[in-house]
Design a protein around this nucleic acid. Sequence first.
DNA 1: AAACGCTACATGCGCACGCATCTAATGTGC
DNA 2: GCACATTAGATGCGTGCGCATGTAGCGTTT
Lengths: 134, 134
Amino acid sequence: MCTHGKIASVDEQNVVGTWRDLLAKHAAAWCALERELGDQHGLGPSDFEVLDFMVDQGQERYRVQEIADGAHLSQSAVSRLIARLERGGLVARSMCDNDRRGVFVCITDEGRDRHAAASPTHRAVLMSVLHGDA
Amino acid sequence: MCTHGKIASVDEQNVVGTWRDLLAKHAAAWCALERELGDQHGLGPSDFEVLDFMVDQGQERYRVQEIADGAHLSQSAVSRLIARLERGGLVARSMCDNDRRGVFVCITDEGRDRHAAASPTHRAVLMSVLHGDA
DNA sequence: AAACGCTACATGCGCACGCATCTAATGTGC
DNA sequence: GCACATTAGATGCGTGCGCATGTAGCGTTT
């Protein structure tokens, strides 16, 4: 019914449903990633996300804000996250000489290794979680 | 290439892409909801989610665990969230006499009003965020 | 070059969350 | 009825996050 008039209202209905579905999947997957990545590789989902972003982009160095945009995190969150990863030896911070305010972040070999090790787990979890639906 | 052999590997590729997309949408929408619902109605996304769940289900009373499942939150998170909402007069907790461990949670009229007021904002935000893509 | 604003990152702070645990109440076996 | 496991919800605790702010370096204007 109601095919006359604004069809947009139908969309409005569906957007909420879409959102609910998105929320459910996100919660399930995030929670599962937290568990599996944490237990098996000592990484949080955000940690992996940042490492994955760096590997995926293939650059040598990244600015903090670049990572923040890529990983859907605030600048401050990335600042601390990078500090944590650096403490764990997975990334390294280095000053850039032309702009001494800035910081270049690079993955270390150990970081690449950890990412490579965690990546199959990541895919497996997503496969199992995002395929139990319609 | 590689159409022979396991086709499942193609899926594995896409799952990660799907997940990235889901993450991006989730982050954008969640962040926008946080801002709009917070500023305009004094509600966090989780607050709204819980109220929305209660209104949507149409029951009189809810157990805490029921809400936790419906809102993708831990039991402890819901316990505190309900306490906050109760302080704000949006829900009420009442003992159930047959099982004195349990707690029944009900929305108040004020809670329904706030939900009704926030609901258009909620839909509007989702409309604008979840429609800026392919 | 001194003063001003701007930018990049770090940090203080408060908050919501999950995990583990606590408390109280309900069963269950004897 | 009395121990014991179980369940519902509250709470201690640690953590990661965003917002606001701090700090240091850059750029511009004069």
